[in-house]
């Protein structure tokens, strides 16, 4: 009799504030949705795919974005771009640093998600720390890369001739399939540091951290529309990410020769800038460099008449 009492109280793990035992509490699980224009909508298509842990346990239903979700993301990014570009360089740096601060505070949540998706605990911690460091790294560059990459050019005529980098505009990004968090941060940070706005397709194998990172973006003073994050299948979205006429550059992470050819061909439609990144190791110090920012800049040269 006593034994059954004990067993019963074990299953009733929810107790009410007044000390009385209540019904078993059902945990409230998060719905992983997209991040477009500062909001978290579901895919307009209503489609999803099931994400399971390596042990086969159901983790979440992940939105399977359609081309229309991408279209909406580009509209939001286009709308947000001029205002974001005109923020002062220092302010953009502050906001990137804020992303790092908020990410640091959410370490436990990100660790749990990476572990659930099959990354070891120590590796998870390492990935989160590297992601935070990467944000801080690019936060530092926002008000410095102009000095480093601008130039005063000697010319034969009586002109003061100088070149400065300007953001290319709206960037579509196919984030790396591996390193769901670090890979994502490594491609978003340099793009927005340079005043661009982005529409990103997250890794389909590691989507949980991408959407939780969207929450970090949402609470870090990044204006709506500057970062838009989609989840879904690369195979069905790649051509839309690369052929949209209102996208100024496309970043592709991967090494599939056929996909790279498709991106290049589609990019030629409006001569958008294709950036192909196939690093073996996202932790490598070589992945932290200002050329990642410069790859998404256009150089404007001004001829200013002087003298006689």
């Amino acid at each position: 009799m006593e034994q059954t009492e004990k067993k019963k109280s074990e299953t009733l793990n929810g107790t009410r504030p007044n000390g009385q035992e209540g019904n078993k509490r059902v945990s409230v699980r998060k719905t992983y949705k997209l991040y477009i224009d500062g909001k978290f909508p579901r895919s307009e298509s209503g489609r999803y795919y099931a994400l399971t842990s390596p042990e086969g346990e159901m983790l979440a239903n992940i939105c399977r974005s359609s081309r229309k979700d991408f279209r909406d993301a580009v509209v939001a990014a286009r709308k947000a771009q001029p205002a974001w570009a005109s923020r002062s360089a220092f302010n953009k740096g502050q906001i990137l640093y804020r992303l790092a601060e908020i990410l640091e505070g959410r370490t436990a949540q990100f660790t749990a998600e990476l572990v659930s998706m099959g990354v070891s605990e120590s590796r998870s911690k390492q990935e989160i720390q590297a992601s935070i460091d990467r944000l801080v790294y690019y936060a530092g560059w926002t008000d410095k890369f102009h000095q480093v990459f601008s130039s005063v050019n000697p010319v034969e005529s009586s002109h003061f001739n100088f070149s400065v980098p300007e953001p290319t505009g709206v960037v579509s990004i196919i984030a790396p399939e591996e390193n769901g968090l670090l890979g994502l941060v490594s491609v978003i940070a340099p793009a927005i540091a340079g005043g661009n706005t982005v529409a990103v397709l997250a890794s389909s194998a590691y989507p949980l951290t991408a959407i939780t990172f969207a929450e970090v973006v949402n609470s870090s003073d990044v204006p709506a529309g500057v970062v838009n994050i989609l989840t879904g299948y690369r195979s069905e979205l790649l051509s839309w990410f690369s052929n949209h006429m209102d996208v100024n550059a496309v970043v592709y992470c991967g090494s599939d020769a056929e996909e790279i050819r498709l991106v290049g061909e589609n990019a030629s439609l409006n001569v958008k800038r294709p950036v192909i990144l196939s690093p073996g190791d996202w932790y490598s110090p070589q992945e932290e460099n200002p050329y990642r920012i410069m790859e998404l800049q256009e150089v404007k040269t001004t001829w200013h008449p002087i003298g006689q």
Partner: peptide
Amino acid sequence: GVYQSLDY
């Protein structure tokens, strides 16, 4: 079959 831009 390609989304357009006001630029054009």
